[in-house]
Design a protein around this nucleic acid. Sequence first.
DNA 1: CGGGATCCTTACTGATACTG
DNA 2: CAGTATCAGTAAGGATCCCG
Lengths: 117, 117
Amino acid sequence: MQCEPLQIDKHKKEMMAVQDSMDVLNGKWKISIISSICYYNKRRFSDILNDVAGISNKMLSKELKELEMNQLVKRTVLDTQPITVQYELTEHGLTLKTIINHLTDWGKEHRKKIIGE
Amino acid sequence: MQCEPLQIDKHKKEMMAVQDSMDVLNGKWKISIISSICYYNKRRFSDILNDVAGISNKMLSKELKELEMNQLVKRTVLDTQPITVQYELTEHGLTLKTIINHLTDWGKEHRKKIIGE
DNA sequence: CGGGATCCTTACTGATACTG
DNA sequence: CAGTATCAGTAAGGATCCCG
């Protein structure tokens, strides 16, 4: 394919940006975890554990830590007995909402297309 | 959080749909591969190998096969010497374009936010 | 050029048990 | 409840060589 040099640069940058996104959202669970928190606004550890079918507490703990490091979720310890920990999306994390919504819609369509044919 | 039962059902379905999407798009490379094909419309094996920084031919081969199975990409063998294989998105694959674009934009923003601070 | 086959290493993941 | 620690299996990924 023949492209203007400027076009090629543009595509390279776009590719890099996509990679950057995927570096943050990598792994089997991250998107699902974000979705869970996103759909409910605030969510406790054990709730997310239930929402995300199949995840282990170890994985959830690890993934949440990474998401927190990337400033996508905020962790709040509530002073209850026993202790409760609440997760919510940061402002930055909330900017993923559009993508989550699209993925939700796309997932439904895909299921129809592939599984339902 | 107190929710109407209907709300809970809705969230569960949304979570499932997200999972379905991620099942198809799993792995470190799929999104990047789709992006490469998407941005260039048509793309050869070795071109994608170059676009997606760090991927090995084995992985690319495997991932493309899976994407083909899920009817997201179409594989065309061109009768050149030596052989050329061209990949393009199917109609169904093209419905991911919106998500790719959002991920591109989000990646740029995220880089500013995290790396550039 | 576009892969497949092989070997090898590391990363991911799950199950279970345990702690504050 | 919200994790951590340990162990152990599986899968992902890379490097290299090979073939039509």
